[in-house]
Amino acid sequence: MEGLAMTVVHAESPRVRDRLARLGLSVEAIEDVLRRAEAERSFCTPLDPVSLPGNIFWGRTIRFLRETYKPVGWTSISPSNVPLLLAPSGDFAITASSGSAETGYAALTPSTRYPKGNAVMKRVEANRQLLLFGEVETEPEQQDAGDGIPTWFLLYHHSKTDQGTRLHAELSLPNDTGSRGKISSWYERIILPWIDFEGFTPFVDDVDDDQGAIDIPIERLS
């Protein structure tokens, strides 16, 4: 994107751990969150609604992130119904989203799996303004908790393996809203180790609520 540097990608273990530590996070805690979310997702069967496994994984990822980090000063907020985990400093927030098949691969560029609604896109536009200009123009009376700060996305993607399911994930900071509602431009990406799950039927073709599904997706006109 014009005016922004190329994407910064952290993929090797020392760099990943150092960058997460500077955000107040850790590989182990995030992996534990994802494992717990997957455990709950695995209770679904083919008789459940097709959207249920994805909804459960997304919702439990949000919940377990909050449960993990609230005791150490993070805050649970949901401005405009976007579920966020707000850092103790108040300088940034984290949400979760399913990603495309490129998620978790340093050499590829992922996107969110599904289009986002207006509330999520406003947060990404705020990221863009902060990265370009260092400020976000908002009306004081319209500003909610967590507005006007960078929002990171914990992206995840399930793929099939011969033994079950492999979960790829990354914590990434978007810098543009992209096209057709899918976020596909990133300022910084922190690639997390993949996780293999064995012994149960994978659900990799389901859909999820993925915060903002009830919003009307927006598209920038050329």
Rank of each mutant, 00 (worst) to 15 (best):
L131A: 09
L171M: 00
R128Y: 07
L130Y: 11
D162K: 15
H158I: 01
P140R: 11
Y105E: 13
K116P: 05
E125R: 14
I149D: 05
G164K: 02
T161F: 07
A101D: 12
S111R: 05
E102L: 02
P140V: 09
Q129T: 08
K160W: 07
T151A: 07
S172E: 02
Q142C: 07
G148S: 10
L167E: 09
L131C: 08
A101K: 12
K116Q: 07
K160S: 14
S172M: 06
Q129M: 11
P150K: 03
F153K: 01
E170L: 10
D144Q: 15
Y105V: 13
P174K: 09
P174V: 03
L173W: 05
V136L: 13
E102W: 02
G134M: 02
V136M: 03
S172T: 15
K116W: 01
L171A: 00
W152D: 04
D147S: 07
T165K: 12
R113E: 05
L154M: 11
R113W: 06
V124M: 03
L154G: 04
K160Q: 14
D162E: 15
A106N: 11
P140E: 08
E135N: 11
M121D: 04
T161G: 08
L130G: 05
F153W: 07
H157A: 10
L108G: 06
L131M: 13
G148T: 07
D147K: 02
T109C: 04
G117W: 06
L173Y: 00
S111W: 03
S159H: 11
G134D: 10
A106V: 13
A169R: 04
E170P: 00
P115C: 05
V120L: 00
L173G: 05
R128C: 04
K160E: 15
A101G: 10
E125I: 09
D162C: 08
A101I: 14
H158A: 12
Q142D: 11
M121A: 09
G148K: 03
W152E: 02
Y114H: 12
P174D: 05
E170H: 10
G117I: 04
D162V: 12
L108V: 10
S100V: 08
Y156H: 11
A169G: 07
A126C: 14
S172P: 07
R166A: 05
L131Y: 04
F153T: 06
A169K: 02
Q129W: 08
E170Y: 03
A107T: 15
E125G: 09
Q129Y: 06
E141H: 14
Q143K: 15
H168K: 12
H168E: 09
P110L: 10
H158F: 13
